[in-house]
Simulated assay, not measured.
Amino acid sequence: MGADGVTLLANNQGVYVGAGGQDELWRPLNDRGAVVFVHPADLPAPAVDGIPPFAADFLLDTTRAAYLLVRNGVVRTYPNIRFVLSHAGGFVPYASRRRAVAIAGDTGRSPLDVLDDFRGFSYDTALSSSPAALPTLLAFARPGHILCGSDWPFAPAAASQYFANGLDSGVDPGVLQSVNRTNAEALFPRLTGTPAPTPARPTPLRLRRTAQRAAARLVFKLVQPGRD
C-alpha cells in the first residue's frame, strides 16, 4: 500500500490483530499516521467440509479482528491509525449492534460509543458489492469511509469483475466517484501530489455525549438477562 500504509493479516497462527500485548506494533504506526489494511487469513481451526474458506471463514476472520480492535480500545488509544477492513468488514456492518451489545456488556461502555468505533473503520468493497451487502455497508459506514476494492490477485478475475459491475450499477454517481477515487485520495494525499498532513498528537478519549450515552448505558443494564 506504499510508504504510508501497511497490510496486516487478521490473525497470525491464531493471534488476532487487536489482541493484548501489541502496543509495540501500534505505537510506531500511530506516530506515523499509518493506514493499516486488515485482510483475512485462514481461521485458526480446520475448515468445514463443503464450505470453502472464502465463502464464510474469511468474513469471520476480519470480523474477529475488528471486534478485538474495538473491544480492547486500540482504535481509541491510537487515534492516528486509519484502519481499512477488507470485504466490507466481513459481518461487521450487518451485525454491528449485536457486537456493540456484547462489548458493552463486557466492558461497561455505552453501546452507542462502541458503534461509533465500528463506524470509524474504513471498508473496501472487494467481493461485497452485491444488492444485499452494498446497501448495508452504505447505511452503516461513515461518509468517506468506503473504498473500492477488487481482492486482486487473490480472487478470480471473473469474480472481481462481477462485484465491480454491482458497484457501478448500484450506487449514485456522486457516491461512486467518492468510492472509486476521492475517499482513497483522502487516505493517501500523495496520490494527488498533496503533502501528507502531520499526524495529530494523541488526544484524550473523545468526549461523550453525556446524556445520550448515560441513558444508553442505563437502558442496556435494565434489559440485561439475569438482572432483577
Rank of each mutant, 00 (worst) to 15 (best):
T125K: 01
T125L: 04
T125R: 00
T125W: 01
T125C: 04
T125D: 04
A126I: 12
L127I: 12
L127W: 00
L127M: 13
S128A: 15
S128D: 06
S129P: 04
S129I: 08
S129H: 05
S129K: 02
S130V: 07
S130M: 03
S130G: 15
P131M: 10
P131Y: 12
P131E: 09
A132R: 11
A132V: 15
A133I: 09
A133P: 00
A133D: 06
A133N: 11
L134C: 09
L134Q: 10
P135A: 09
P135L: 06
T136D: 12
T136K: 01
T136C: 14
T136N: 09
T136G: 08
T136A: 14
L137D: 09
L137M: 11
L137E: 11
L138K: 09
A139Y: 02
A139N: 13
A139V: 06
A139S: 14
A139R: 14
F140Q: 06
F140V: 07
F140W: 10
A141V: 06
A141T: 04
A141L: 07
R142W: 04
R142L: 15
R142K: 14
P143W: 04
P143K: 03
P143T: 06
G144E: 11
G144Y: 08
G144L: 05
H145E: 08
I146L: 09
I146R: 01
I146W: 05
I146S: 04
I146E: 03
I146V: 15
L147K: 02
C148E: 03
C148H: 14
C148G: 03
C148W: 12
C148A: 15
G149N: 01
G149E: 01
G149T: 01
S150C: 09
S150G: 07
S150A: 15
D151M: 02
D151F: 01
D151N: 14
D151I: 02
D151K: 02
D151G: 03
W152V: 12
W152K: 01
P153N: 10
P153S: 15
P153R: 03
P153T: 09
P153V: 10
F154R: 00
F154S: 01
F154M: 05
F154K: 00
A155P: 06
A155T: 12
A155S: 14
A155N: 09
P156R: 04
A157R: 11
A157Y: 02
A158D: 15
A158S: 14
A158E: 15
A158N: 10
A158F: 06
